[in-house]
Design a protein around this nucleic acid. Structure first.
Lengths: 195, 195
DNA sequence: ACCGTTTCCAACCAGATAGTTGCTTTTTGG
DNA sequence: CCAAAAAGCAACTATCTGGTTGGAAACGGT
């Protein structure tokens, strides 16, 4: 069998994604990642430098994924609500990114990974919001976007709190989703009206 | 000098609060907590059982604190916005609780600490919301509350993301606070109108 | 077939980590 | 004032951690 470096890297990335998402950076165990990937631990240090590098790589992959899978597009407040809904679905299907973002916020604090790329990513997203809601203030667009992201991502992490607050009603997720969509739509309407 | 067990316990709790808030559960180091408190490590195991017990105690203290310091009171939608603002201020002054909640959500997942007490706490809060907005649906009250909490707590953890999205404008925190207050007020208005 | 290069791996290391123990010091109650 | 109980502490342990290394195995070009 020929060497398949990409495959090995992907196996490691997949295992690392799961481990980091579950346990966070300091909780993740390098040995466990290697074992889950069925790859020798040493490969991690060869391919990704060290634990930090692996974390960064995982986050980069997931960020790229959400950009492609959940675009901001369409026109008017309803389009923003729709975006929030799709973001909610994305996280619900696979909570990895939401968890990684909170892990990063908590563990890394101010030393964010790859500031430049992240900054560009954010700028693009804000720009897209401004296209969907013409005439909106840039700061308002950022606030609206942050609100949508916080609500969607926050729910995947604080789901236990939600269960305590709202009880274990059937299709709780669907109800929460509808609530968030409505909130974001309403907010977008209000911001555009005053623009 | 007489034994002052309470003082020792409080020293440990204070140090543990800081450590857990900063590093989370698996990132926190028992030795560091003991050193910061100027107390022998063994005391922790005597007073709190083990690391888990200390974490639980810290969380309990902070939860009790926010109930007292940030009550839900008043009448009508504006009162809910006001509550969100005060919650925001509470976390901004001291991000400990917000961070602990997210740490718990991420690290503990479904095995939440002291379910019974937490459940009661949540029920009381929802009840208070229903008093402020008479006639509102119970599920809506829970959703509104969760929205306010998610937005306020989320901002303290995702502040870096905020900086990337909105730029480092002066008094960014104040602007975000105003946005959240407005969002919650508007939402409360809408919910009460349809009630 | 041969050989330099790349990929892989088992064993290893130094430092850290949660949790324990045996003993000393202080307090308390009669 | 004395003995029993409680509180305090330094040193210890067994285990785990991220990270390294020296050599074996598989490859590709000739």
């Amino acid at each position: 069998m020929a060497w398949d470096i990409e495959r090995t890297k992907n196996l490691l990335l997949a295992a690392a994604t799961r481990e980091f998402s579950d346990k966070g950076f300091s909780g993740a165990r390098v040995d466990r990642i290697a074992a889950a990937a069925g790859v020798n631990k040493e490969r991690i240090y060869q391919y990704f430098g060290k634990k930090d590098g692996l974390f960064d790589a995982v986050l980069a992959v997931e960020l790229r994924r959400v950009i492609v899978d959940v675009p901001i597009e369409g026109e008017g407040p309803v389009a923003m609500g729709d975006y929030a809904g799709r973001l909610f679905d994305h996280h619900r299907k696979d909570p990895v990114l939401a968890r990684l973002l909170f892990w990063e916020g908590l563990e890394r604090g101010d030393q964010m990974v790859d500031r430049e790329a992240r900054s560009r990513h954010c700028a693009v997203k804000v720009e897209q919001v401004m296209e969907v809601l013409p005439g909106i203030d840039r700061t308002d667009a950022a606030d609206l976007l942050l609100t949508a992201v916080t609500l969607c991502d926050g729910w995947t992490v604080l789901a236990q709190l939600d269960a305590l607050l709202a009880g274990a009603s059937p299709d709780r997720a669907g109800r929460r989703r509808a609530f968030i969509v409505r909130t974001v739509t309403m907010l977008a309407e209000d911001l555009q009206a005053q623009a």
